[in-house]
């Protein structure tokens, strides 16, 4: 099985076989995270730069741990510490990073398409850790790994994704990947947060959380940006919680063994009630744990990605 991607820009560009290989590789790496010596020499001597031009705690931490457990040297630059605030262009920033000869750049950027921009201009591998409202491939892959662990397969699963669909990169990455893996995806959210043509990415669109959650195997709640309250997209968080929040009553509509997911960080009492967030069906911390393994798999696979594998 060949993995011949130099970059991970989005799940849009990955085949079903690619995704399967990433998940299988991640399963193998998961075991390392439970050892007392949580380190293998796989990427010894490689340099990984985590360039986070937008705030993120857990994704950056997850990529950093993933790199370190593979023995790579990981260096972080963040939005405030980097030159972006000094008016430097992304191309100049990229050129300056390039001459330090990194092997992989992991980039989080507020502008959709920024990782593509870098991939076109740099010799090293580029991994998209979230670009604007476009894609967040490692999140979708860890979501799917979590689903596979709990459900044994993805084919035929009914997956409900609820929240701010329009501004979510997690949704787009999940839509591409889940459809390739054979899932039946249902979306729900307020009318102001449902972007045009999203159904063409392979989803059934609802404006009622109950319709989406009904008989679902997986219920994925999205984080609502608190600052959207009072703007034109949302009247109040209270109203959002009432109509689009996941609570025990709504969750009862899903299959009895349905799992509840959230990419974090959660707004308890807004998109998800504490009872559900801490309830027996939640697999939210499992997602975070899988994040390290999936990111190890991505770092490993792009490192040898240009050579054909027998």
């Amino acid at each position: 099985m060949a993995f011949n991607h130099k970059h991970i820009l989005g799940t849009e560009y990955l085949s079903r076989e690619d995704i399967q290989l990433i998940l299988d590789t991640a399963e193998s790496f998961r075991e390392i995270n439970t050892r007392s010596i949580k380190k293998v020499p796989t990427l010894r001597g490689k340099t990984i730069i985590n360039a986070f031009f937008e705030n993120s705690t857990r994704t950056r931490l997850s990529f950093e741990i993933a790199g370190k457990r593979l023995s790579a040297d990981t260096v972080n630059i963040s939005g405030s510490a980097s030159s972006v605030t000094k008016g430097e262009t992304l191309e100049d920033t990229a050129r300056n990073i390039e001459v330090m000869h990194p092997d992989i750049i992991v980039i989080r950027h507020g502008h959709s398409g920024a990782p593509h921009y870098l991939a076109e201009r740099l010799n090293c591998s580029v991994i998209n850790a979230g670009d604007g409202a476009h894609e967040h491939p490692s999140q979708a892959l860890l979501d799917i790994l979590t689903m596979r662990q709990h459900k044994g397969k993805i084919d035929g699963l009914k997956v409900a994704i609820v929240g701010d669909i329009a501004h979510s990169r997690v949704v787009r990455s999940n839509l591409y990947a889940l459809n390739k893996m054979g899932a039946d995806v249902h979306l729900a959210g307020p009318g102001t947060m449902m972007p045009s043509g999203i159904e063409r990415l392979g989803a059934t669109v609802h404006y009622d959380i109950r319709a989406a959650v009904k008989d679902a195997d997986v219920v994925m709640m999205l984080r609502i940006q608190l600052e959207r309250q009072g703007m034109t997209l949302l009247p109040t968080l209270r109203e959002y919680a009432r109509f689009f929040g996941l609570n025990d009553d709504v969750l009862k509509l899903a299959k009895a063994d349905a799992i509840v997911m959230h990419p974090g960080p959660m707004n308890r009492g807004v998109e998800i009630s504490s009872a559900v967030a801490d309830g027996p069906q939640n697999v939210i911390l499992g997602q975070v744990e899988n994040g390290v393994a999936v990111r190890m798999a991505l770092l490993y696979l792009v490192s040898g990605g240009e050579q054909a594998v027998e």
Binding site: M1, L21, T25, F29, I32, L70, Y300, V302, Q307, V309
Partner: peptide, 15 residues
Amino acid sequence: TMYRDDLDSRGSKPI
């Protein structure tokens, strides 16, 4: 596989 010394020359093999 994780301990191989030929990642650069032979590519990423399934683990």
